[in-house]
Amino acid sequence: MKQFIFIIVLISFIDMFAQLPIMSPFAKELGATPALIGLAVGMYSFTNMFGNILAGYWIDKHGSKKVLLAGFFLTGLIILLYTVVFTPWQLIAVRFLHGLFSGFLVPAAFTVIANRGKEGKQGKSMAVSGVAVGISAIIGPAFGGIIASKYGVNWVFISIAIVMLVIFILSAFVIPDTTKQITRKIEPPVKTLVALLKNPMLSISFSGAFSLMFAQGVLAYMLPLQVDSLQFGTQYSGILLSTFGITAIIIFALPTNRLFDRYQHQNTMMAGMSVIGIALIFLSMSTTLSFLFICMVIYGTGFAFLFPSISAMLVKHTDLETRGKAFGLFYAFFSLGVVIGSSLTGILAVSFATGFSIAACILFANTLWTFLYFRSKAGVTESME
């Protein structure tokens, strides 16, 4: 069961990562202008946010299994539509639907993981699931690029769609249905979402998700420009990104994953944000290839501490009736961070050094805010005693 859930998370993220190297060239082949290419690429993340939020509500109402099955089935069918698009606007329409329905997958998958996790072991559980995310980040782009170059871009979509539909069938038999454990009284969606946002611990988790993916969006946009400006080979952009992913996977998979339950989640969260911020500052000053690799190892270490911490914090402060919506919001903030991080640096037309510095400041500011919150909370507790 654990291995199958690992595969579910892996496939859910490969769907996103495999399209990264092929979507812009695909849109260009259809005759899209630069503006339409940007719209086509960004549309997925934009509608993915709404899919995450809708999924969260339906998970708590109908159970994570049903939403997961719907996500795999609908996403598999929508991906097949890429093979019959002939204009940029048709592509944008498919991207709209793809982002919306694939938004069901990740909140549902992580809700399944969270509901099956043992009390007090949420950090380790989320760290292990982070291995799947890291592996998909490494093999997804390579898979998309290799299949597209050898067999054509349509076979990327066909192969992913087939895998999605196979996982849909297997999930129907393997994933247990936990709907019975959920109280049927469901509050109005907007009211519940507002209540979740007002929860201080969940707000800290959401802000951590946004900060992490804001930095990720800046990194994805700026690192290739930096590598190009330093006149290194373009292949090093992918190798550097893989370095951070491999570093994170090693920390997730080794006994170091016990640290996420040994220390308070907010402490490992602040450590992770600080380490990523330091890595970004170093990146802004990097002029040699060896130092870039060192920076990405540092970045991967920070990512490995931050991701499980904010996920486990969410699990700890939710229950079966609210966890789905909480994960939906959580991954909506993920998508929002990527969209704002990459688009803001593009709109401002800043240098890679400035872009990395902006992202670092966001992380340091969030670290400071989190530290001050828990310090004031501790002060209130002491005064009451």
Results as ranks from 00 to 15, higher is better:
Pro308Ser: 05
Ile53Leu: 07
Ser125Gly: 12
Leu344Asp: 00
Leu197Phe: 10
Ala248Phe: 13
Tyr299Val: 02
Phe334Asp: 03
Gly120Thr: 08
Ala332Val: 12
Gly302Trp: 07
Ile340Lys: 01
Thr192Val: 06
Pro189Gly: 05
Leu193Pro: 02
Thr301Met: 14
Ser159Glu: 04
Leu20Glu: 11
Asp319Asn: 15
Val67Thr: 04
Val156Asp: 08
Gly140Thr: 07
Thr178Asp: 14
Gly277Asp: 06
Val339Lys: 03
Ile204Tyr: 04
Tyr299Lys: 04
Ile78Ala: 05
Leu223Trp: 00
Ala70Glu: 09
Val350Trp: 00
Phe46Asn: 05
Lys198Cys: 09
Ser311Asp: 07
Leu10Cys: 02
Met270Gly: 00
Leu306His: 05
Asn199Asp: 06
Lys377Arg: 12
Tyr373Phe: 12
Asn52Lys: 05
Arg262Ala: 12
Leu20Pro: 03
Phe356Met: 02
Ala279His: 11
Pro34Ile: 07
Met273Tyr: 11
Phe330His: 07
Lys198Leu: 13
Asn199Gly: 04
Thr83Asn: 13
Pro189Met: 03
Val133Gly: 10
Glu119Gln: 11
Met273His: 04
Ile11Met: 11
Thr192Gly: 12
Asp261Ile: 04
Leu36Pro: 06
Phe72Trp: 08
Gly71Phe: 09
Gln266Pro: 00
Gly103Cys: 14
Ala349Gln: 15
Ala195Gly: 12
His265Leu: 05
Ser242Trp: 02
Gln3Phe: 11
Ala132Trp: 04
Ile7Met: 13
Ile14Ser: 01
Thr192Phe: 05
Phe327Ser: 13
Phe305Lys: 01
Gly245Tyr: 15
Gly144Ala: 10
Asn154Glu: 15
Leu372Cys: 06
Val315Ser: 11
Trp58His: 10
Leu77Arg: 02
Arg116His: 15
Asn199Thr: 14
Phe307Trp: 12
Thr370His: 07
Met270Phe: 05
Leu225Ile: 13
Val163Gly: 02
Ser205Lys: 09
Asp319Trp: 03
Ile249Thr: 04
Asp319Ile: 11
Tyr331Arg: 07
Phe293Ala: 06
Ile147Ala: 10
Ala27Arg: 05
Phe50Glu: 08
Lys180Asp: 10
Phe305His: 03
Lys377Val: 04
Thr33Gly: 08
Glu187Pro: 01
Met16Thr: 13
Leu36Asp: 04
Ala93Ile: 14
Gln90His: 03
Phe356His: 00
Val218Thr: 11
Val297Gly: 06
Ala35Tyr: 11
Tyr331Asn: 14
Ile169Lys: 04
Phe307Gln: 14
Leu223Glu: 04
Phe206Ile: 10
Ile160Phe: 08
Ser207Asp: 01
Ser290Trp: 14
Lys121His: 12
Ala365Tyr: 07
Val163Trp: 02
